[in-house]
Amino acid sequence: MTPELVMNIGRQAIEMTLMLSAPLLLAALVIGLVISIFQAATQINEQTLSFIPKLVGTFMVLILAGPWMLQMIVEYIRRLLESIPQVVG
């Protein structure tokens, strides 16, 4: 196992993590921004107001993007497991 191969596997793992987490994080970010603008406009300073919309939005994104995320992680794991003979030998 060469250092380049280890770096390549690590890079692919980080890329996969970013691709799978991006939809959920972006949804929470956008919803939080919208709620913050609403709170600033109405001067409602309730800290818990953004929790439920973020939770519902993240859940909806997970429902919509879940099949794609599952397909991506299954393909990544399949590629990783198929590369074991080349890595070991």
Rank of each mutant, 00 (worst) to 15 (best):
M1V: 13
M1L: 11
T2K: 10
T2A: 13
P3L: 15
E4H: 02
E4D: 15
E4Y: 11
L5G: 05
V6L: 15
V6S: 14
M7K: 14
M7N: 14
R11L: 06
Q12A: 14
A13N: 10
A13S: 08
A13Q: 12
I14P: 12
E15L: 12
T17F: 08
T17V: 07
T17P: 02
L18Y: 05
L18Q: 04
M19W: 10
L20K: 00
P23F: 04
P23A: 05
L25H: 03
L26T: 12
A27N: 05
A28R: 08
A28C: 08
L29A: 05
V30Q: 06
I31P: 03
I31M: 05
I31R: 02
G32R: 01
G32A: 04
L33Y: 07
L33F: 10
L33P: 09
V34H: 00
I35N: 00
I37F: 01
I37M: 01
I37H: 01
F38R: 08
F38G: 10
Q39I: 07
A40Q: 11
A40I: 10
A41D: 04
A41Q: 12
Q43D: 11
Q43F: 03
Q43E: 04
Q43Y: 01
I44N: 09
N45L: 14
N45E: 11
E46Y: 04
E46S: 12
T48V: 05
L49A: 06
F51K: 13
F51W: 13
I52M: 12
I52L: 11
I52S: 04
V56P: 07
V56H: 07
G57Q: 01
G57W: 08
G57K: 02
T58F: 09
F59Y: 14
F59K: 03
F59M: 10
M60E: 14
M60P: 11
I63P: 00
I63V: 05
A65P: 04
A65G: 06
G66V: 08
G66W: 02
W68V: 00
W68L: 02
M69A: 09
M69V: 01
M69S: 06
Q71R: 15
I73Q: 05
I73F: 07
I73N: 00
I73G: 02
E75M: 14
E75P: 03
I77D: 04
I77Q: 01
R78H: 08
R79N: 14
R79Y: 04
L81S: 03
L81V: 11
S83E: 05
S83Y: 14
P85S: 03
Q86I: 10
Q86W: 00
V87Q: 07
V87C: 07
G89P: 03
G89D: 04
